[in-house]
Design a protein around this nucleic acid. Sequence first.
RNA 1: GCUCCCAUCGUCUAGUGGCCCAGGACACCGCCCUCUCAAGGCGGGAACACGAGUUCGAACCUCGUUGGGAGCGCCA
Length: 477
Amino acid sequence: MVQFRFLRRIPMTVRTRFAPSPTGFLHIGGARTALYCWLEARRRGGEFVLRIEDTDRERSTEEAVKAILDAMHWLDLDADEAPVYQTHRLDRYKQVAEKLLAEGKAYYAYESKDEIEAMRDAAMAKGEKPRYNGYYRDRNEAFREDPNRVIRFRNPQEGSVVFEDKVKGRIEFANSELDDLVIFRSDGWPTYNFAVVVDDIDMRITEVIRGDDHVNNTPRQINIYHALGAPVPEFAHLPMILDKEGKKLSKRTNSVSVMEYREDGYLPHAILNYLVRLGWSHGDQEIFSREEMVKLFDTADVNKAASRFDTEKLNWLNQHYLKSDEPATLVPEFEWHLQRIGIDASKGPAPAEVIVALRDRVHTLKEMAERAKIWYSPITEWDDKAVAKHLQNDSAPRVLDEAKALLAAVEWQPEPIHQVIEQVAARLELGMGKIAQPLRVAMTGTQVSPSIDHTIYLCGREEALKRIDAALVRARG
RNA sequence: GCUCCCAUCGUCUAGUGGCCCAGGACACCGCCCUCUCAAGGCGGGAACACGAGUUCGAACCUCGUUGGGAGCGCCA
């Protein structure tokens, strides 16, 4: 055990964990928790690990595990170790519970669920908190086969539990408010509050970062740490994320799954940047690179109050990254979106050039893909108003004829094309509006598009000339 | 009902007793630029929940009120 003693002398490494229960997809609140755990570990040179809390065998699914892992991967929140699955650790929980039993820190109880419920109703009727009355606490009943057999933790009755939450500050609970919670269910599986503590001890977690819906569980868990003679980690309870109306986020009215945000066209780092600023800040700074987040983030600077999810601001950030990222780095995600709407990116302009043309005009890659359609497939719809206004007038046919002639021979690059348009304007003595709009309708069937030179350029010469011909038919028709 | 938590512009927030008749960002409005739509530039309106204290002085400290939220499971 020489090695062991040596290890003890090494300063404790910071370890954080993200512990989702696989009963659904990774939602946006969970993503923020994971981000904060990840950042805290990275900043302090520590380790970030994952634990799958799958002891609820009714609701946990394989698909959900995969969905969560996929989302974490997409966000690039990498864990330092393989995930720990609670269902693989049943023997360990049993072992720890036996120890507590042997030391008199836990006991068997045999009430049925109905009896427990009646107990709670009675307490409520008296204006008290619904809780266990401690019937078996001092009865020292031995183990016996019984469908109702559970193991309860013998919670201290005197004094109080105080902890210094890194975001909320000092929090105190009187032990008299706590009852003897079940740590092992009658089905032979441990309960959440027990498994979490055993796992966090075994996984050497030094800072527990989780949603503040867990604040009320914390004193119970601390008492279990004490009973087990284990050091208590630090706690940081993050406030909730509410929807735009200030209500709890729900699937009905919001996108909640991280992967839905992907489908909606958001960039992973835009989501991360949005999330890091939702509940945390560093002065007036809004834009944070991954490196800056890692350098600056601190759970101690997290806000105490709940915050609302604002899609408008996410949109702004997403566009910010669309505009400032190197286009080439956006291509894979963009192509993913093109493919989703049935566009074959190989049959049209280079995606990077399309990105440059559209990034000032859209907030998401989904929108971008939709608008990119005009360069990858033929025009199928014509905006009647656009046709009537910009094609069916005196100058349009002349503009189109003239442009067609010049475009047929020009070097196919945005700049020469731009010069062609200016030449047309000069020759026909017309303003740019009179030139650009008919061409725009010709190229797109609508009166809205990126700058006309780029719009034409991206069509490709052959297609551009074909579209001018088609427009001439309409202009004269 | 009981316990715990929270409270600055519409939203995210800066602010830790004087630098604040409160700063930034998103959104909104106006102007400029302009081949459309955007993007961009410039400017504008917009908040310390309320009431008592403490203090020479309070967005910041204390108490109360009101309003929100979470939890009170053999779910996590």
